[in-house]
Simulated scan of single mutants.
Amino acid sequence: MKNAFRILLLSLFFVGCQQKIQPTDIAKINGYWEIEKVVFDKGEDKDYKMNESYDYFEIANNKGIRKKVMPQLNGTFLVNDAFENVVVRFDKEKVFLEYKTNYAKWSEELIVLSDKELVLKNAEKKEYHYKKTGPINLTGDGEKTK
């Protein structure tokens, strides 16, 4: 009985420590995010050592866009005209990113959001773990990247 009580107490502690995302936190999502790993619903991970593209978010007043960008070695990004409209939806204790294109609609739950970390969970229960990133500049010329 003692062990069951300890397990219950520990479970409540971890649930209570889960980050609650506030409307003021949403501005942290703006910028470039590089995927680090995907955690599947059965617990397996797929790590990403290097990425050819980043996700770029630009959200204001709970509306904005997400687009794929490809970093270049000189600190610039290759972009195209494709993007997804994004709406942030608060539902009780949860926060969702609602995406829409001309071809599809879908939603992801915002699990973690900080200055350096982003975790999104899709309908298939896959968790996408991102780290905040920026331009790459390997030219060594000392110029600031854009």
Rank of each mutant, 00 (worst) to 15 (best):
Q72N: 14
V119T: 09
L110T: 00
A27Q: 13
N137W: 02
D115R: 04
G16F: 08
T145A: 14
V112G: 01
E98A: 12
S107I: 12
L10K: 13
I7S: 12
I136N: 10
I35V: 09
Y130M: 06
L120R: 03
I136H: 12
M1Y: 12
A82F: 14
F57E: 03
D25R: 00
K116F: 06
W33V: 01
F96H: 08
N74A: 10
E124D: 15
T139V: 08
G64K: 01
D115N: 11
W106N: 10
L10S: 13
A104T: 09
K105L: 04
I65F: 09
L10D: 09
F57R: 02
L12Q: 09
L9E: 15
G140N: 07
F57S: 04
K94Q: 11
D45H: 15
D81K: 13
E93C: 00
H129M: 05
K126M: 15
F57K: 03
A123F: 09
K67P: 02
E52A: 13
V15K: 03
D45G: 11
T76P: 01
C17R: 07
V79Q: 12
V39K: 15
Q72W: 02
L97F: 12
R66K: 15
Q22C: 02
P23A: 04
T133P: 00
D81M: 10
N137G: 02
G134L: 07
T76G: 05
R89A: 14
K20L: 09
N122H: 06
K49L: 15
I136C: 10
K63G: 05
E34A: 14
Y32P: 00
I111M: 12
I111Q: 09
A60P: 00
S107N: 14
G43T: 05
E108D: 13
R66Q: 13
T24Y: 01
E124W: 13
R66T: 07
A4V: 06
Y48C: 06
Y56E: 11
P23Y: 01
F13Q: 03
Q18F: 10
K94H: 12
G142M: 07
L113R: 02
E93N: 10
I136Y: 11
F57V: 05
K105F: 10
A60F: 08
N137M: 02
Y103D: 14
